[in-house]
Design a protein around this nucleic acid. Structure first.
Length: 461
RNA sequence: GGCGGCGUGGCCGAGUGGCUCAGGCAAAGGUCUGCAAAACCUUCUACAACGGUUCAAUUCCGUUCGCCGCCUCCA
């Protein structure tokens, strides 16, 4: 079984599932108040790959990812543009799914919304108050963090240290401790509100995830994930509430590293690429997936125009392989022995790497080695064997959600077909000057003509 | 102030106490090709600095320098 780095334990652990062959995971989703950026894309891709890989291995995955559709920032935005919070949330949620779809990220099994869970959240908060773990003030209901043993697990810091850190920052308020966090916020004029035993108001952010996770996945679910910054305080606070309720929470915690976009230089050269929408519109969306997979999920990932284009070029290798082995005439059942063993070994290595804390860079290296192998076999005239190896490449790519694309020749219009035919004629007649000029014309129209033993092939430039 | 991470060749990025030190992109040369493209082969630059441990360190330990994250809403 796969091993992952558990943030709570601080080392690698087997992901032993609560139920055999079933994975229950919760990944914190977006607060829908603005356009999604490349950082969202990274975490979406990473957890998508984890999910796909497990599914590829025959595990049934329940993937829950919430949508925070009521929050200070949404209210702020709504006020700014004189819109309602519901409209803002709907607009950015749509954008969210649009880009996630474009990136090839599978839709979660469930996407609970905060506003649909208010009643249940109120129950959770009431329960915590009842147990004496939360207290009501004029500023809202707060969770009393010091009553939770082991608070600071995910931060890897003892309570006192956290407290001294927190004191450096803000303060004020009716909190008993600077670390106490708000469970219920009293209404301000003009804000959307819900009824509660503590008056009209709305739930604090940290409560929705606990409530939804426990509701949809049940106690002791397998994995809770999100961006590195979420570990503390967000996830810590979810834990605290679950613990306060006396309910078992996530077995494992997994956090992905940050996307680094170099300040000034980056924004100038990259500009619009910071927004995911621009990224997927201006580049092959697969290239960002490849770029993300080429670094380890816990490392910081620097995204630049250059690295994206670099990934896009690397993708060409896969696409070229796909073109080459598009329609294998005959596929042998298996490879002769030395080759067979090599292939089996490569496949095993791929899985070993994936299961070693999702070492996608190493897994990709295995894939690219197989690409070479397939091409070499074909170059040596063993096309069928090459096709078999290429088939394994495509299969493994599936586990990563990375698909090779084939040029769709059906989209070629008459004009292009004419040019190609004329060029073929010219070549047959030995009129290479004309042939080359026709090639240039094709290129100008965005097509690359490749001469192969089986005729001229076209692909997009 | 506290906690944590990082510094690898032109670029991105794995990894390892020693043996041929991933992979991708780029560059150079070659094979193939009418020319290209694709593919394959070959080559080129490495492990921030300084100490220490060791028969042997890029890999372990320490120090220094540089960069970054978290402790506050954040993927």
């Amino acid at each position: 079984m796969i091993r992952i780095y558990d943030t709570a334990l601080g080392n690698l652990v087997e992901l032993d599932l609560r139920d055999d062959n079933r994975m229950a995971m919760y990944v914190c989703g977006p607060t829908v108040y603005d356009t999604p950026h490349i950082g969202h894309g990274r975490f979406g891709l990473i957890f998508d790959v984890l999910r796909r890989y497990l599914q590829f291995m025959g595990i049934e995955v329940t993937y829950v990812s919430n949508v925070t559709d009521i929050d200070d920032k949404i209210i702020e935005k709504a006020n700014q543009v004189s819109s309602s919070t519901a409209e803002i949330a709907a607009k950015y949620e749509q954008e969210w799914w649009d880009v996630m779809d474009a990136l090839g990220i599978l839709r979660p099994t469930h996407t609970p919304h905060a506003t649909q869970y208010v009643t249940q959240m109120v129950e959770v908060i009431a329960h915590l108050v009842e147990k004496g773990l939360a207290y009501n003030t004029v500023e809202g209901v707060y969770m009393e963090v010091e009553k939770i043993p082991g608070y600071g697990l995910l931060a890897h810091q003892p309570l006192d240290t956290l407290k001294s850190g927190a004191r450096l920052m803000v303060c004020s308020s009716h909190k008993r401790s600077p670390l106490d966090f708000v469970l219920w916020k009293p209404a301000k004029p003009g804000e959307p509100t819900w009824d509660s035993p503590w008056g009209k108001g709305r739930p604090g952010w940290h409560t929705e995830c606990v409530t939804m996770a426990l509701d949809l996945l049940g106690e002791d679910f397998d994995l809770h994930g999100g961006g590195a910054d979420l570990a503390f305080p967000h996830h810590e606070n979810e834990r605290a509430q679950a613990q306060g309720l006396g309910r078992r929470f996530a077995r494992r915690w997994m956090h992905n590293g940050w996307v680094v976009v170099e300040g000034e230089k980056m924004s100038k050269s990259l500009g619009n690429f910071v927004s995911l929408k621009d990224l997927v519109e201006q580049t092959d969306p697969r290239s960002y997936r490849l770029l993300v997979l080429r670094s380890h999920y816990r490392s910081p990932l620097e995204v630049t125009k250059r690295t994206i284009l670099d990934a896009q070029d690397a993708l060409q290798r896969l696409d070229a392989l796909k073109r080459r082995f598009e329609n294998p005439d005959i596929l042998p059942d298996s490879l002769p022995d030395p080759l067979n063993r090599e292939l089996a070994q490569a496949t095993k290595q791929f899985h070993d790497k994936m299961e070693d804390d999702l070492d996608t860079p190493a897994a990709l290296a295995v894939i690219f080695d197989l690409v070479r192998k397939a091409n070499t076999l074909a170059d040596q005239g063993q096309l069928a064997y090459g096709a078999l190896v290429a088939g394994e490449v495509f299969s493994l790519c599936q586990a990563l959600g990375l698909f090779a694309a084939v040029t769709d020749n059906n989209l070629v219009d008459d004009e292009i077909t004419k040019l190609v035919n004329s060029r073929d004629q010219a070549r047959l007649a030995g009129n290479y000057a004309l042939a080359d000029s026709l090639r240039k014309q094709l290129l100008a129209k965005g097509w690359v003509a490749e001469d192969t033993p089986v005729g001229t092939k076209l692909r997009h430039a």
